[in-house]
Write a protein that binds this DNA or RNA. Structure first.
Lengths: 345, 345
DNA sequence: TTTTAGCACTCGCCCAACGTGAGTGCTAAG
DNA sequence: CTTAGCACTCACGTTGGGCGAGTGCTAAAA
């Protein structure tokens, strides 16, 4: 599955060294520096090789008479290489323990994204996607002016709520009874099933003669309408952005940071983006591989976790010049840890 | 209540013009520019006056042969002046309407802070402080492994939740009954009262002989322990930060932004800071008036709203060079709008 | 054919010098 | 107390030259 067959082994090793050097020092890598890294070849040879690498698009020089800098394609080759010979790391036990102790899913996401950020020195995020949320518990609480607060607990203790203004008035007792009925009738069903069943039962003969049940079902219909656990996303470490300089021009840097901060603000957009990369376990998207132009200065490393019932994504986002090996290990081990926590729970 | 009696009326008007000019253009204000603003005096006179203003500490010059820039004290005088002759503005009706339609308090905060940010072009925040939260509704939901999800609805539809692991096991039915009992017993009481009463009832004679009630009360005790609605804070518009340059040196600018973004991340810290300024209705803290050194490049304008039961703060935060008149109107009118919404509800 | 030493060349970076002009402070007259 | 006039200051932008890291190329060596 080597994706870059045209490149001789030695060239690839040298490219990897170049990428690592650039990641570490942030300055264009010179042939002389590479020569000092013990490949047993002279700087002149390395210069020849670098010309070849440049022809293939793996590196570029910022200007004549400067060293080479990896392109996004160069990072890609480096990362692919990394993934080939990698032993899976395991998150520190205390990290897993802390995840385990988290009460709700939200809590755990928060811990996970924090840990992702802390360990990788990048922006960390964690995301719970809701595929077919299952009803655990429903509660109807009367507010003022006839409004009703609907509280939905779905699988994993996730809480969603909304306020409705029912067409007909319901008193506290009736709400209580309706909630009891709905809980016993629908617990364990997915929300889609619940909606389906509500419609069916409203049509059934016996419902027509049971006014109370009809009222309960109408209320339920309103309650469940549009009541869907929003994908929860937690983002942490945005301020780490400022530790980075992206380019020589401070203006460019600032513009880049602005777009990212804005993206962190409108989280829904980020959710959509992450969703695109989802599914394939560990996903790494580097710079210009992003569809969204705003993300092109960044790389995203994300891994989905899942135990069948619940699933989501944990990952980091940072500049294309990031410590991929570390970030990959962090994200991968975290997502495994989350899966284990889910399975044992 | 004029706080700066030593300064002649004309000097104050000129200072105000200088501050406005600086706010608008962001460049040191020259005597010539001021002369063009129709004070009927020549630039030479204005230069004399500016020397006086500088001696009093209201302005400074970045370097010899540059115009004057207001100091924080200068902004202070300007703002005090603004507050003296100000007619109270009222938020646009559609803004108030949108706040009114918000279901929960959180929703409303979100709208309010967004509106604060949008209208003032600054970072907007809204904060619900919880003084003596009143129990509206309590719910106990069994999770896996004997854990119980406690959901608390307090005044205004605010939802708080936590997960407990009770010492004794409870089944679904018993949880249901316990919740019913607690709701009927304690609805409308403040959380402090509830805790107090739980202790008392646990001591009462008859409880000793009613094992079920005792179990319910012990569960309640665990449930309410530390269950306090956290002050909710919503911050919006952080990316507007990047529209600003704070100083000539881009490094300083970046450092400043970093501290602020970090502060926006650790919201609890911001809550504490805002709490300090609370209470006095409209609070304006300018630059070096802040206790926290990290905040000294910024000004905070905040106003508390309250209807007796619920209270909180809405405000904006931005660079000391901000459009105070606009920001003050925005914040003040928003907080009035929120109060009205609360009262009518 | 590949590698290497040697060397001329390129070009970004640093710095110092300099002219420019906006804005001031001061003085002396109104 | 105000104002015209004027010398002075100083940040800013531009220019030009020296420096040096790093390259590309060529020709010899392996």
């Amino acid at each position: 599955m080597t994706r870059h067959p045209e490149l001789p082994e030695r060239d690839r090793r040298i490219l990897a060294a170049l990428v690592q050097g650039y990641i570490e020092h942030g300055e264009p890598v010179s042939s002389l520096w590479l020569a000092s890294r013990g490949f047993g070849v002279s700087s002149a040879t390395l210069r020849n090789i670098m010309v070849r690498l440049e022809e293939h698009g793996y590196v570029r020089q910022p200007h004549t008479s400067a060293g080479r800098v990896p392109t996004d394609l160069g990072y890609r080759l480096y990362v692919d290489q990394l993934l080939l010979d990698r032993r899976t790391a395991r998150a520190a036990p205390q990290v897993e323990e802390r995840l385990r102790r988290a009460g709700t899913v939200e809590d755990m996401l928060s811990h996970a994204s924090q840990e992702a950020s802390r360990a990788s020195h990048q922006i960390g995020f964690a995301l719970a996607t809701t595929t077919d949320a299952v009803l655990e518990h429903l509660d109807l609480v009367p507010l003022d002016a006839g409004r009703v607060l609907v509280i939905l607990v779905s699988s994993g203790g996730r809480i969603t709520h909304k306020v409705i203004e029912p067409a007909e008035p319901y008193d506290r007792d009736e709400l209580q009874r309706a909630a009891n009925y709905l809980n016993s009738a629908f617990k364990g069903h997915t929300l889609a099933e619940v909606r389906q069943e509500i419609v069916e039962r409203l049509r059934e003969e016996r419902t027509l003669y049971d006014a109370l049940m009809a009222r309960a079902l109408r209320l339920a219909s309103e309650s469940f309408d549009g009541l869907e656990p929003q994908p929860t996303i937690v983002i942490q470490g945005t301020s780490l952005l400022f530790e980075i300089e992206f380019s020589d021009h401070p203006e460019t840097t600032i513009a880049t940071m602005r777009t990212l901060v804005r993206m962190m603000e409108e989280k829904t957009r980020l959710v959509r983006l992450i969703d695109e990369y989802l599914g394939s376990g560990l996903a790494i998207v580097i710079g210009s591989e992003h569809v969204d132009p705003d993300l092109q200065p960044f790389s995203v490393i994300a891994s989905t976790y899942s135990d069948g019932r619940r699933s989501g994504t944990v990952g980091v986002i940072g500049p294309t010049r990031m410590r991929y090996s570390r970030a990959i290990n962090v994200v991968d081990s975290l997502s495994r840890a989350i899966s284990r926590v889910f399975e044992n729970a």
